[in-house]
Design a protein around this nucleic acid. Structure first.
Lengths: 264, 264
DNA sequence: GTGTGTGAATGCTTTCACAGCA
DNA sequence: TGCTGTGAAAGCATTCACACAC
């Protein structure tokens, strides 16, 4: 009966499935809890908040104390209206006529994104890509320590990659429990992906990042995001093709529309 | 003045930016050209077409001659209405009461996605990730041969990775022209990404796949898609957090909503 | 009967534009 | 005066539901 949901995000449906789960649920009994608010943030906005966070960190390192929505928007590649709307989902932390305090914004976004917790990551499939991922060591932006590696190849078991010894995939349940893994990364060949996914789910992992070019079937409570190289390249290919036979030469440079914004 | 657009896709705004560029442009003078149609396909649908294509290839290998929208939809992780709508963007290739011929659909999707052409890929930044990408060799699903590698590290120049010798980044214009590179992949450290991007653009590359956690500024005619690990993980983190303090335990297993579909 | 193709309806997301506050 | 915060409008994407073709 395995219920199935569209896979969110990314590289695959690089663009699609924005909403799906984040629909502002009416919540019959108004729960007072402070961050029940989190419920109302559209998925599309969540992904952008992560981008704003990175830009803000950069600004902070440069010693910036405040930013305006316009500045931040330009740096993040969105328009300022969208940025303000996104920030409004997490609260009102700006000062009219002035802008936002960088430190405050960083703190609030981190809180909303749950970055105050640590999230242990397990990488399954230590091939080309798995190796590269394991070696990122600590994973982007810290807060995501890689704490377990799995493979099925006997020659790899015990070999340390990026400082972590590889475990056999049969030990996945035990090891994930011991190391409190909350995010599983699948970097196996396609045929193995669904099986690995099932094992991760059985081991209690509820968030999965899938690099295998396969549509995973998971139960409702598991969150999957995917990174799909082939899809990315094919979408780019589509644009190449569109360009080649599509636009009348004259309008070619005009039809990008003004969807970003003009940087002064 | 560098105009700037929201970056499409993915792993970053894993979900967002669905529309942006694909807006069905009214096209004043009805161009008769067969595949002017391509213009009208929403970006979100394009990404899904790539997924359908992969599923169809699998079906074909298994010897399937036809599929119904329902079967294909389940395999691709979407609902059948969406699938039919997506397919309708490329034409009417189904037979009512029967389904779609697998071979026909494959051919049509490949044509729309521009997979009848070959698209040479250049990878810039041969570190951890660049290595892994170069070694994919031929890149996912073929049709995307990696034909150039670049780095700035003198020790790497001339060393073959995945069969291709690494060139110095200063030769990017010449090499890209010689090998007719149409897609550039950026796998450099963040600080180098914008510079590399500018060079690729200067070299005439109009499609870029960006793995660096940086918002690239590009001219209007260049298409960028990004794969952003940090954003992916943070979106997952958000869901972990939402789960932890959000839902009343009782409804926990219900609030996934029926957004996928029930598989029989 | 069966399953496609599609207009119409719904629901998100983005954009606009301005009230309100520092 | 300047910039945030946000209702309202516009634009897309998804879903529904049914006419139509086989």
């Amino acid at each position: 009966m395995a219920a199935q949901r569209g896979q969110r995000n990314g590289v695959g449906p690089a663009a699609p499935n924005a909403a799906e789960v984040t629909a502002p649920i009416p919540r019959v009994a108004e729960v007072p809890a402070a961050r029940e608010r989190a419920r109302a943030i559209p998925e599309a906005a969540v992904a952008r908040l992560a981008v704003y966070l990175r830009v803000l960190s950069g600004l902070q390192e440069q010693g910036a104390g405040t930013v305006s929505s316009e500045e931040l928007a330009v740096a993040a590649g969105v328009n300022s209206a969208k940025l303000r709307k996104d920030l409004s989902y997490i609260g009102s932390y700006g000062t009219r006529g002035v802008g936002y305090e960088v430190a405050v914004l960083i703190e609030e976004i981190e809180r909303i994104l749950g970055l105050t917790r640590k999230h242990s990551v397990a990488v399954v499939g230590i091939g080309n890509l798995g190796h590269a991922l394991a070696n990122y060591g600590g994973f982007p932006g810290r807060g995501f320590p890689v704490s377990a590696l799995f493979d099925i190849d006997a020659d790899l078991i015990g070999v340390p990659v990026g400082g972590i010894p590889v475990d056999h995939i049969d030990d996945i349940t035990r090891v994930c429990a011991e190391r409190e893994v909350s995010i599983g990364v699948i970097a196996t060949p396609p045929p193995a992906a669904q099986g690995v996914c099932d094992r991760l789910v059985a081991a209690g992992v509820q968030c999965i990042l899938n690099f295998a070019p396969v549509v995973l079937q998971v139960p409702d409570h598991v969150e999957v995001r995917k990174v799909d190289l082939a899809v990315e390249l094919q979408v780019l290919s589509f644009h190449v093709a569109r360009r080649a036979d599509g636009p009348a030469p004259a309008s070619a440079s005009l039809n990008g529309r003004v969807d970003g914004m003009v940087v002064s």
